[in-house]
Structure formats: structure tokens, C-alpha cells
């Protein structure tokens, strides 16, 4: 089932175009409030889009004519709040098969509950479940409906680390053959679950492509940030990237001289030095000024105007916004055209 969707929701300033190949998983990567959930809800028909064109396997579900009602689309939404119904867990999972007129809905539901590891919860009510259990039940309910396309809205939001990690592993197996869109703000989810990635910023898709491509070779600083990478961009000159400030970063490969190119690397791979120009010839040094300091657990992300580095809190403690620093980037990273 190949899904092509273009949805516009004017009230929430969302105008997104998404494509998922048959059996593939697309990660819709963006920060909170970027319109990911709205885009999914519009595709599922939970919110009414201002304009939309949704084509599933060549059949236009929403477009010029009368839209196909949500219940006939075969597009199931797994909502962030689980939205379990006031009935037993088994009845929740049997809801889709029963609506489809199946007679063996209880067996189907039992099978799916076992697959998500919740067979022993069949008789419970939604209020008697932990957050992780409720999410598993909601996943079983969504898959038991045999969706042509499954939309998962932040499937790990609001879960503790342990539950999130076990559900992530489970979903990777369950989604193998399902056409799915997963929204997330976490590059790790995109890495582990997705074949393709679309990056969303303020209601628009700003970058899309194969996961490996978008996550390791982002084309915009925004996409790089979402992919947890630093984008060092400049102009190719004689085997090196020349940055706007004049600093040179020797790279391997990349486009021809005079073309725009970039390297991307994790912020933890960037070295930070305060004070005089460093002597270490193994790294290419880029002079910069601190624009922001973001605490992240044990480390602090030091954001400059060109480069970002994750450094130990003791180092960052001596820094203020505006402080002059040197960012050290390894030489010879593979460059790509922008």
C-alpha cells in the first residue's frame, strides 16, 4: 500500500506532503508543535483538513470528489493518549475485527494481545493499566484492525525509559511489513524504526528521503539538529570546505571546487577549546562565539553560530553566551553536495 498525502489544515498552519512506499515506515521527525500530529490526524480523518489529496495505492481517498469517510479508509491512527474505550482490554482489541464483521474477533484479539505481550491483561479495564500496558494494548488494537496504513503519533511519548525501549523493540518487529508513518522528535526512533524520514518544521516538510540519507547527510541546520548532528557547511575549495568566516576544514570527496558542500557529525565528536588558537594539527579549528548553552544530562551542548559541541559540564561552566571559543572538527570527513 503506497500512500501519497497532501494535507492543509489552515487553523493550525499545517501544509504537508508525505509519501510512504508499500510496506515501508516513514518517520515524521520534528520538534513539539511542528504540526506532526495534525498532519497524521488530517490523513486519518480525525481532524478535517482545509484541503487534502490522499491517494492510497492509486485510489484517491480524498481529493476532488466526496472524501471517503474515515471508517472506510483503512487508515488507523494510534493516538498519543491511547484513546482506549470504556470496555475490557480484549474488547478494545476486538473492536476493529468486530466492526469489520469478523466472527472470530475474540481469537484475533487474543492473538494480538499475545503478540504485544499482554495476554494476561485481557479482562482488565483501561483504567487498570500502566502507561506502557495501555500503549501496548492500543498498538494491538490498531494492528488487529488490519490497517492498510498505520499512523503512530509519538508512540513512546509519556512512557518511562524502560517501557519505551521495550516497546521500541517490539514495534520494530511488528512494523516490518506494515505501511506506517511514525511521528517523533527523537532521531533515535527514526534510526531504529524508519526506512524513510521526513523532517517537519512549522507545519512544512523541509526535507525528506531515505533514513540513512536524511539522518547522516542532512541538508539544513534544522534537519541536522533533528537528526542530532552538526552541519558544517561551506564552499568547496581545494579539498577543503571554506566556511563563511574563512576557516578551512579539509574533507574527503565532495562536490567540485566552488560548489556548496557540507560534512555532518555528532556534536559529541566536536572538540571545544577556550583561549588561544590550538596547536593540535589532527583537527581543523573553527573560531566561533557561543550563542547558547543547553544542559543535556551530564553534558552541556555549546551552540555556536557555525558549529555545536557537546562538552563536559565542568568545561561549559566557565562559558557564557558571547564567549570566544574554538571548535575542533576531525579532518577528512566525507563531504557531500548541498
Amino acid at each position: 500500500m503506497r500512500l501519497e498525502a497532501q494535507v492543509t489544515v489552515e487553523g493550525r498552519d499545517v501544509d504537508a506532503t508525505l509519501t510512504v512506499g508499500a510496506g515501508r515506515t516513514l518517520a515524521l521527525l520534528g520538534p513539539n508543535g511542528s504540526g506532526k500530529s495534525t498532519a497524521l490526524e488530517a490523513i486519518a480523518g480525525v481532524v478535517r483538513p482545509t484541503r487534502a489529496r490522499i491517494v492510497l495505492d492509486g485510489r484517491e481517498l480524498v481529493g476532488a470528489g466526496r472524501p471517503v469517510p474515515p471508517r472506510e479508509r483503512g487508515i488507523v491512527l494510534l493516538a498519543q493518549d491511547d484513546a482506549l474505550f470504556p470496555m475490557s482490554v480484549l474488547d478494545n482489541v476486538a473492536f476493529g475485527p468486530r466492526a469489520a464483521g469478523r466472527r472470530d474477533e475474540r481469537e484475533v484479539a487474543g492473538t494480538w494481545l499475545a503478540r504485544v505481550g499482554c495476554a494476561d491483561l485481557a479482562a482488565r479495564r483501561p483504567g487498570e493499566l500502566s502507561g506502557g500496558q495501555a500503549r501496548r494494548v492500543a498498538i494491538a488494537r490498531a494492528l488487529a484492525a488490519e490497517p492498510r496504513v498505520l499512523l503512530l503519533d509519538e508512540p513512546f511519548a509519556g512512557l518511562d525509559v524502560e517501557a519505551a525501549s521495550s516497546i521500541r523493540t517490539m514495534l520494530r518487529a511488528l512494523l516490518a511489513d506494515v505501511t506506517a508513518i511514525v511521528t517523533t522528535h527523537d532521531a533515535l526512533d527514526a534510526h531504529t524504526l524508519a526506512d524513510d524520514v521526513a523532517v517537519m518544521d512549522r507545519g512544512r516538510v523541509v526535507e525528506a528521503g531515505a533514513a540513512a540519507e536524511v539522518l547522516t547527510r542532512p541538508r539544513t541546520p534544522f534537519a541536522a539538529r533533528m537528526a542530532a548532528r552538526v552541519l558544517v557547511a561551506g564552499t568547496m575549495r581545494g579539498g577543503a570546505l571554506e566556511l563563511r568566516g574563512g576557516a578551512r576544514v579539509p574533507v574527503s570527496g565532495g562536490p567540485g571546487g566552488g560548489a556548496a558542500g557540507a560534512v555532518a557529525l555528532p556534536p559529541s565528536a566536536v572538540t571545544l577549546v577556550v583561549g588561544d588558537a590550538p596547536r593540535d594539527r589532527a583537527l581543523a579549528w573553527i573560531p566561533d562565539a557561543v550563542t547558547a548553552l543547553e544542559p543535556r544530562g551530564d553534558e552541556v551542548r555549546v551552540v555556536g553560530s557555525a558549529v555545536t559541541a557537546d562538552v563536559d559540564a565542568t568545561v561549559a561552566a566557565r562559558l557564557d553566551a558571547g564567549a570566544a571559543v574554538w571548535f575542533g572538527v576531525p579532518r577528512g570527513l566525507p563531504a557531500y553536495a548541498l
Partner: peptide
């Protein structure tokens, strides 16, 4: 909201009224 989710699971309006 639950009603909208029930619709994506394929339920008719009558079923949603009765069961949700």
C-alpha cells in the same frame, strides 16, 4: 476524540454510539 479514533478502526456511527 475516542469516537474519531473508533471511526478510523472501521466502526459505523451506530456502533460508535452503542459501544463507545
Amino acid at each position: 476524540r475516542r469516537e474519531a479514533i473508533a471511526a478510523t478502526l472501521g466502526a459505523s456511527r451506530t456502533r460508535i454510539l452503542a459501544r463507545v
